[in-house]
């Protein structure tokens, strides 16, 4: 599968947040989005996931254009800035709620995803009682539990302890190895180099450089 971002421009309230972005992303590759705060990394992730529509240009997922042939990619898992879950539900209940929308996976896969990020599937604590790191881990579990073809993770290792970082890296490599397109944004240069195969540098809504990670 291939994602094509073609001459994509997005203007919000007069400000150009994405400026004529062109990008091709391929299966089985992990792309690292690099850039300062407000450079447009998250917006580009939102654009690829169909959460925003372009002022001009388009995003194609395979041969289907977002906003025209389909509203959202058919198989996608995302974690953006703040994980979005229900405060009064446990981690498992939150994932179950999401999994039930498409009905692709059952209890077993949900529990496996929770274990993979180092969370206890039987934990009865509500989400609001979770630490920052646990919330982040749950967000990653939600993004990968259905084994989507596109995995988008914005700052996935934020607030996560060392053991957790190892698990997250493992998850990202597994997703890549099964043929998913993985997009990761990370402030830590070294971590990004380790995770990504290609680095996409974004500045002021433009892609300024695309190179192989060394």
């Amino acid at each position: 599968m291939e994602i094509i971002v073609n001459d994509y421009t997005k203007t919000i309230k007069g400000a150009t947040v994405l400026d004529h972005v062109n990008l091709k992303l391929h299966s089985g590759v992990c792309y690292g989005f690099k850039g300062k705060n407000g450079s447009g990394k998250t917006m580009l992730m939102r654009a690829i996931s169909g959460l925003i529509n372009p002022s001009s240009g388009y995003v194609k997922i395979g041969d289907k254009q977002l906003g025209k042939d389909l509203s959202f990619p058919e198989s996608i898992g995302i974690l953006l800035e703040n994980p979005a879950f229900l405060d009064n539900y446990t981690g498992y209940a939150n994932l179950k709620l999401l999994a039930d929308i498409q009905g692709k996976i059952k209890e077993k896969e949900i529990k496996e995803a929770l274990s993979a990020v180092g969370l206890d599937p039987e934990d009865k604590r509500k989400y609001k009682k979770y630490s920052l790191g646990m919330k982040q881990k749950l967000g990653i579990a939600a993004a990968v539990m259905e084994k989507p073809e596109i995995v988008i993770l914005d700052e996935p290792i934020n607030a996560i302890d060392e053991e957790g970082v190892v698990l997250v890296k493992k998850i990202i490599f597994e997703a890549k190895n099964r043929g998913a397109i993985v997009i990761v944004a990370c402030h830590d240069k070294e971590e990004l180099m380790e995770l990504a195969d290609e680095i996409v540098e974004i500045s002021a809504g433009k892609i300024v450089e695309k190179k192989e990670a060394v």
């Binding site: 996931s49 959460l51 509203s71 959202f72 990619p73 996608i76 994980p83 979005a84 999401l98 929308i101």
Partner: peptide, 8 residues
């Protein structure tokens, strides 16, 4: 939230 929306 975005988790729900992209699954629709």
């Amino acid at each position: 939230n975005y988790n729900m929306i992209v699954r629709k």
